Amino acid sequence: MPSEVALDDEEFVTRAQAGDLEAYEFLVARHTAAAYRTAVLLGAGSDAEDVIQEAFVKGYRRLSRYRGESSFRAWLLAIVANETRNLHRSRERRNGLLLRAARLSAGAEATEDGAVGAVLAGERRAALVRALRLLPAKDREVIVCRYFLDLSEDETVTMLGWPRGTVKSRTSRALVKLRGLLQVEEVSRG
């Protein structure tokens, strides 16, 4: 993230902490897309909007606790990740189902044009999402943070609340697992 964005975030956080609701609304607008992607990719599916709304409300209530030790974005995405985990726990209790993974939007595939390149890209994306769904939750979380959300290692540490060494080792192992799953799928299709 460019440093001027981080500086802007710091300014708006300070204003929001002083009671400026418009400043917080600006932060919400700036980080909604990343929060939504985080919720979807961590398995919120169709509940992603509810998850991020709850995360933004909790973020506002906890704004006085934000100390700037990490970027505001990482701090906020950690709340989104926690809300997504809460959703998973409630789904398990309510339905007794396994964790649900992120889904591709049916509308995105329906709007693809007939070009071969677009079809192949869609198939590769679908294969990646299927493989991602097969990873254990913690492996999926670290892959989503590092590669889908493009978070730095420090931001991933903050968001997941794991030690740096755990983030490094789990990222490495998860990538190996993901590559293996993609290779198995490619062999089975070919």
Rank of each mutant, 00 (worst) to 15 (best):
R179V: 02
A108H: 12
D20R: 03
L98I: 10
G161L: 00
A115N: 08
I52D: 08
R85K: 09
A131P: 00
S105W: 11
D154T: 11
V80P: 10
Y24Q: 10
E141T: 01
R179Y: 09
V129L: 01
A81L: 01
T166S: 15
R93F: 11
V5C: 07
Q53V: 09
E22M: 10
S3Q: 13
E141S: 04
A131H: 00
N86H: 15
V51D: 04
H31K: 08
A81I: 00
D9T: 07
S152V: 06
V40M: 15
L120M: 05
L77A: 06
K177S: 15
E123D: 05
L21S: 07
A115S: 12
R65V: 04
S152L: 04
R15G: 01
R170H: 10
N82T: 12
V28A: 02
A48E: 07
A174G: 01
E22I: 01
V157K: 03
L135R: 00
T84W: 11
I79H: 04
D20L: 05
R73P: 05
R15V: 00
R164G: 07
Y66C: 02
R179T: 05
A48Y: 06
G190E: 13
L160S: 06
Y36W: 09
A126R: 13
L175T: 09
L87H: 10
E25Q: 15
E185F: 07
D9K: 03
L135I: 00
W75E: 01
S3K: 14
G122M: 00
A33Y: 04
R73C: 06
R164L: 12
R37Q: 03
R103M: 13
S64M: 08
G190Y: 12
G45D: 14
H31I: 02
K138F: 10
S169K: 06
T166H: 14
V57A: 03
G96I: 06
E10N: 07
E49S: 12
T84A: 10
L97F: 13
E22T: 07
L7W: 09
D154V: 11
